[in-house]
Design a binder for these strands. Structure first.
Length: 432
RNA sequence: GGAGAGAUGGCAGAGUGGCCGAAUGCGGUAGUCUUGAAAACUAUUGAGCCGAAAGGUUCCGGGGGUUCGAAUCCCUCUCUCUCCGCCA
């Protein structure tokens, strides 16, 4: 039996037991490491301890049943209590051992990354990502293009200096028509998503620890989130976190799948230690706006749904008329919980750089397993669902590309046709 | 912020130390009846873990304690609701 071609690859304890070499090889392809043999040993110990503890408990329960039928305070009863104390103590001890063994196993098990889907190219890092598609002409002449942060009126409309004064670096003010432009993009993205069948939700922009753990932000990415320790709340780094957790610890009906949702939220990222030459202007911010698409699917259709999701996102860039490329991320560059991931990058003609504006991912059952999101299979038994998400889209970098690519000779920027309905003006940055 | 009440299965809601994984009702599923449907009736219907299976075991908000034995008693945390105060 070969899981490679039968099932979407998931990290399931059964797979680990039956095909440890396969799992070992799959993990070696990712940039994460974990000790499979140690985890298997913990699994063996755990199962033995659980069996012992349950046996002892069964004995105790059987004896207790007899106790219940004896008259209280009778000599037999009192005699039996003494014997029962020993049984109870033994049972309790084994139970503690089993619990400890189970926790040790669970902890190690959670450290196993999701396995890459077979369609994910094997590679060590970003240099080995494949270009799955390109659209538009990035080599075309953009005679007026300059980096957006060098446009003369840029600082007057996206005010970084005052953002520093009020909040800190990476928290700019969008002023006047630029604020309206952001709102236009949000409206455009949400409306497009709605027409593609995604139901809009407006989620909390803080989450608790359980939610952040379920989607995989905790424990390893704790440093990337803003946290309020008084309340135990985290500012969300993406709408993926609250939206995916919508169905945490729930069992869905198979006929309601796939569930497709979209959400606009601000996103907050500390980006600790990642500031440098390439992060000027809108390229990297601590707070930014984004519309996110999230899907819950059954185990069979998640890969097909990922392709649809990617298509939905591509359509946005096409309507915005921004040249872009789609990267099929390789095993060494996809994240810990990812099975398959596409990154969409727009070409910013002023910087002459590709800017990542979307990441579309299939997590298979990885997040859902942690989050306890299931659906009823054809036999009525709960099955772990699959979750997917994709940015559609991250606003600042899209805005950067629009500013650079659509810059006119007179210093104004042409508003893309698809946004004019929301903006009610054809140009921004009109000279004062 | 102050005072009080509460947290039990998909939902509602019994249960105050052993016969309780848990009554009853609703809902769901299957069947009977019907040309079909509704109604009525009958049966069935939580989840996790160990196990090839038989079966076993855990779970009554979370954690800890008392006890031979806990949904039930004690401690603690979290959350919810009601009233008062404050407030967009």
């Amino acid at each position: 039996m070969c899981y490679l071609f039968t099932d979407p690859v998931m990290i399931d304890i059964k797979l680990l037991r039956e095909q440890p070499d396969f799992v070992r090889a799959a993990i070696a392809n990712k940039k994460f490491t974990c000790d499979i043999d140690a985890i298997l040993a913990l699994d063996v110990t755990r199962r033995a301890k659980i069996t012992d503890a349950e046996q002892a408990r069964a004995e105790q329960k059987a004896a207790n049943k007899e106790m219940a039928s004896l008259p209280k305070g009778s000599p037999e009863f009192i005699e039996k209590v003494q014997a029962m104390k020993a049984i109870a103590a033994k049972s309790k001890e084994l139970e503690l051992e089993a619990k400890a063994a189970d926790e040790a196993f669970q902890e190690a098990f959670l450290a196993i990354p999701n396995l890459a889907d077979p369609s994910t190219p094997v590679g060590k890092g970003e240099d080995e990502n494949e270009i799955a598609a390109t659209w538009g002409d990035a080599d075309a002449e953009f005679p007026n293009a300059v980096p957006h942060f060098d446009i003369p009126w840029f600082e007057s409309r996206i005010d970084f200096a005052r953002g520093v004064k009020v909040a800190g670096a990476g928290f700019p003010f969008y002023v006047g028509e630029m604020s309206r432009m952001v709102r236009a993009l949000v409206n455009f993205f949400l409306e497009e998503a709605r027409q593609s069948g995604y139901e809009e939700v407006l989620p909390p922009i803080v989450v608790n620890e359980a939610s952040a753990t379920a989607t995989g932000q905790l424990p390893d990415k704790e440093g990337q989130m803003y946290v309020d320790p008084n309340e135990g709340l985290y500012l969300i780094p993406t709408a993926e976190v609250p939206v995916t957790n919508f169905y945490r610890d729930e069992i869905l009906e198979a006929d309601q799948l796939p569930v497709c949702r979209c959400a606009y939220t601000p996103c907050f990222r500390r980006e600790a230690g990642s500031w440098g030459a390439h992060v000027r202007g809108l390229n990297r911010l601590h707070q930014f706006d984004k519309v996110e698409l999230v899907k819950w699917t059954d185990a069979e259709s998640s890969m097909a749904e990922l392709e649809k999701l990617r298509g939905n996102v591509e359509q946005l860039l096409q309507k915005l008329e921004l040249p872009y490329r789609v990267l099929r991320m390789c095993t060494g560059d996809i994240g810990f919980p990812h099975a398959k991931q596409y990154d969409l990058e727009v070409f910013a003609a002023g910087q002459k750089r590709w800017l990542e504006v979307s990441s579309c991912s299939n997590f298979t059952d990885f997040q859902a397993r942690r989050a306890g999101i299931r659906y009823r299979g054809s036999d009525g038994k709960p099955v772990t669902a699959h979750t997917l998400n994709g940015s559609a889209l991250a606003i600042p970098r899209v805005l950067a590309a629009i500013l650079e690519n659509n810059l006119q000779a007179d210093g104004r920027v042409q508003v893309p046709q698809c946004l004019q309905h929301w903006m009610q003006q054809e140009f921004i940055g009109v000279q004062q």
